[in-house]
Design a protein around this nucleic acid. Structure first.
Lengths: 227, 227, 227, 227
DNA sequence: AATGAATGAGAGTTCATTCAT
DNA sequence: TATGAATGAACTCTCATTCAT
């Protein structure tokens, strides 16, 4: 019995938080508020950010924010909903190109590792993690279950390769997760905890991704050749 | 040029926070406070936990807490220092046993994955991550640079196996990090974000560790036999 | 080498405290807060007065006070600034009248003594003195360096009398200070310390001022006649 | 009807605060505590001084202080009682010497002015004033009604001079108070408010005292000679 | 619809005082 | 008797939220 982590999500995890307000329909103003909130939240974190700061950054009044969003948590949740796509969609085209498996994995791995260690991603993730106790569904939604979820995308790609006989893989989802981990080998953790205080340099990412591909293909290469 | 993440830690990251006060030396009361604080922090997170909550949970007065700890941050930092050992040292003996490489890696991987996904570890890590901006050294200390750091321990083991010819590894540190990632394949992330709301079942951990060992040995087995 | 105490005031002593906030501009509410604060401060003194007391006395919420004033010290400083004028300007016209020197000094002395021993002035001075360590410029500003400073005003008058030959005075500033002291002969001290728990009666003030004028004119009368 | 300020003191103003503790009889320890308290109070003021500071400065435990003194206010009151003598007694011998009136007044005036403007006196007075609302009797006691009260001492001297015909004075008490004010001309105020942040130099004191004597003798000299 | 002044509960922290040892 | 750890009320100040305009 296996757990498909791309689908595990309890309750209404993936549904947008209910209770859309009646007032506050102007989408431009809405974006304006979210932009200001993003700036402030990213800089200060959820708790340290004050609604006054956001008011100032967004250039709207306090009352207006409360017309468009129920409260601070709601504002944050909607912001994260919006940002989710920006964070997860980036790698989806890397596997489209008509290149060798090795090269495709390389581009994909580098893109993924670069993205996952970026200041922006790390800050957003830290925030989402830090409000986890108060807003459990938010983090849940944030990480998983989008159609462009990297695991799903890579899994699809691996399945196509298996069909073509290029790769030999029993459990494509596990393999996809393995590859993603091999491509980052703890970078994510080190970044999240601040042990690395900046994204790793491009050369380091390439070194790690190449090492990961070597291991990955040693196990899954369909041609019998050691990578 | 590679980055040895087991050593990356700036400033006085690993030094214990100086300035232990002279009063407040009763270790029993100290533990009592830390226990209460742990309960509250684990439940609410750093910001949401109030000193009043902790007062109540610890069964001591507010003043007493401030005799033993300088402030909320100090209390939290000391708590994390205490917990760090419990979190990081568990896996250190798994590799001592006189068994085959495969079996040794299996025990170690299972222990590590079990530990890393436990409710306790996950909550602690969430908290440490969430205070990263205010207490950067804490997270840094927390994750790395103990002698029993899993990466260090495994790296040492791998080097011994390379010396014996059992394994063939260019870069033992990278390999150690690869193995640890393969043994958890994203469990950590899913747990941290709440996508998985409970530790994976033992069977799932074993399945994933076994899959990881298969890939790992495909790349590094010294005997040429596919794992 | 003499010290001109009307000018001794170091640093930015006389400059109004900078940093008036943009919000909190309603002058009515501002006065309302200052009035409440005045009542409480006068009754309790700076330290003993709590912001909660002031909140209650002013009939506004705590938050509102902090919109209009940065903190307790700022509130107090602004209060004293406001009161300063009421305290120091009162005697400025007493010397304008076209009467004999003796009568002019008499009116001025009585006004000054009455004012200096009033409950209001004494309480304000006690407070200013008691915060001297924390807000040195406040006390400094408070006492001196206004154009209507009694010493300056009287000194000017005496100089004009010297020019007219009515009085013969070497050092008009010293003489001014002497007259002011003669007009109060320790009333200020006794009131400040509470040895006198009420302003002296009008008759007592007149007796003392008359006695002071007698001494003063004995020394400085330009006509050689004993007063 | 005149007010004799050397006697005006309501209630039990001059009586030592009742309620002597039964325990805490060791006078050496008592002095030790008072010495520590004096150091701390002088440095920090009444409110800012904490009992812990005093504990440390006195080298005794908290409990011990509360054996010898009822509470912080009582401790302060007793301290001021003890210090009162040191502050007021200094000038008592200045008038004994067998010298001319002018010289006697000069020594006395200089001593008095020097004393009244000293850092020690000013700090003590500021403190006493600042607790006036909470401990009204303390300040009252502090200033007046000791046998060596400068007004009383000087008044006695003046009366003897009047008896001898050296001086001609209607109201010796008023004259005494006048002289004391002439000898300080506001120095006390300027020091109290911090307009002067150090005692005036000796030369300045002499200048002022000499000016005061000139005025005083112009009014009261029994020999008809202008001073 | 939009504003932003006002609210007041609640935060972290201090410290005079007590009392078991 | 002397101690100093423990107490908890009270402090200043913040800020998410409301609502009269």
């Amino acid at each position: 019995m296996e757990t498909d982590v791309t689908k595990v999500c309890h309750e209404d995890c993936a549904t947008p938080p209910a209770g859309r307000r009646v007032a506050g329909e102007d989408p431009v103003k809405r974006e304006q508020i979210l932009d200001g909130a993003k700036r402030v939240f990213m800089e200060q974190g959820f708790d340290a950010a004050s609604m006054n700061d956001i008011t100032r950054a967004a250039g709207v009044s306090k009352g207006t924010i409360y017309v468009y969003f129920e409260n601070k948590e709601d504002l944050f949740a909607e912001l994260i909903q919006r940002e989710r796509y920006r964070i997860t969609e980036s790698a989806r085209h890397a596997l489209d190109a008509d290149v060798s498996v090795r090269e495709a994995l390389r581009s994909f791995g580098i893109l993924f590792a670069t993205h996952l260690t970026s200041e922006y991603t790390i800050k957003a993730m830290r925030m989402v993690i830090s409000v986890n106790q108060r807003m459990p569904n938010l983090a849940c939604t944030f990480l998983s279950a989008t159609p462009m979820n990297p695991v799903s995308v890579l899994k699809g790609y691996l399945e196509r390769q298996v069909a073509k006989g290029t790769l030999v893989i029993d459990d494509p989802e596990l393999a996809a997760r393995q590859f993603l981990e091999l491509a980052t080998v703890g970078f994510f953790k080190y970044r999240l905890f601040g042990t690395m205080d900046a994204p790793p340099p491009q050369s380091e990412i390439e070194r790690v991704v190449d090492g990961g591909i070597r291991v990955f293909l040693a196990a899954y290469d369909g041609h019998g050749a050691r990578a």
